[in-house]
Simulated scan of single mutants.
Amino acid sequence: MTKEVTSFVYVTYIASTPEKVFEAISNPEITRRYWGHENVSDWKPGSTWEHIRANDERTVNIVGKVIEFSPPNRLVISWASPARADNPESHSRVTFEIEEYEDMVRLTVAHDELEADSDMAKGISKGWPVVLSSLKSYLETGSGLDVFAKPKAA
């Protein structure tokens, strides 16, 4: 039986350069500042990458493989929870497309091959918007957002 899959596409415009946006996605010292995690890899196609919480516990939250690394315009990675990393069927794919757009950058993040209605898909649908907003804020102002913030109680 084939699993039902879903995908999400997010587009944002950032007053920056493709080089700075690409570095902000792939440099762990920068990702920790707006994402609260470090994206760690040697970024060679076929290599592993880890999404490590930037706190004292250093929990590995997501793992995957580097599929394509083409600075400063394209990065493609697989994405899985560590508990399911050994099962290729559980991996989804994230594609970062970075293009110059007049005096700014158009960043498109496509997260596809997600199992429909899974906890991962539900988390992705809430997580990417705040992460990308924080990335934009960081690159434009020097300060990221609190990506772990929760809605205020009514």
Rank of each mutant, 00 (worst) to 15 (best):
F8C: 07
F8L: 08
F8K: 06
V9I: 13
Y10S: 08
Y13W: 13
A15P: 07
A15S: 12
S16Y: 05
E19F: 10
E19Y: 09
K20D: 14
V21T: 07
E23L: 13
I25K: 00
S26A: 08
N27A: 04
P28T: 00
E29W: 03
T31M: 00
R32E: 12
R32F: 08
R33A: 13
R33Q: 10
Y34L: 03
Y34M: 05
Y34E: 06
N39P: 07
V40S: 07
S41F: 00
P45G: 01
E50P: 07
H51G: 04
I52Q: 06
D56S: 11
D56C: 10
E57F: 08
E57K: 13
E57A: 14
R58N: 09
R58D: 07
T59A: 14
N61D: 14
I62D: 00
G64D: 04
I67P: 08
E68M: 11
S70K: 11
S70W: 10
P71W: 02
P72H: 03
N73F: 11
N73R: 11
N73T: 11
V76A: 05
P82N: 10
P82V: 01
A83N: 15
A83K: 15
A83T: 15
A85G: 09
S90Y: 13
S92D: 03
R93I: 15
V94N: 02
T95C: 02
F96E: 01
I98L: 07
E99L: 15
E100Q: 15
E100C: 14
E102W: 10
D103T: 10
M104T: 14
T108H: 03
V109W: 02
V109F: 09
A110F: 04
H111L: 01
H111C: 00
D112T: 06
A116Y: 10
A116R: 12
D117V: 10
M120D: 12
K122Y: 04
I124Y: 08
S125A: 03
W128A: 06
W128K: 02
W128M: 02
P129N: 06
V131R: 12
V131W: 14
L132E: 06
S133F: 10
S133V: 10
K136D: 09
L139H: 06
L139Q: 02
E140P: 01
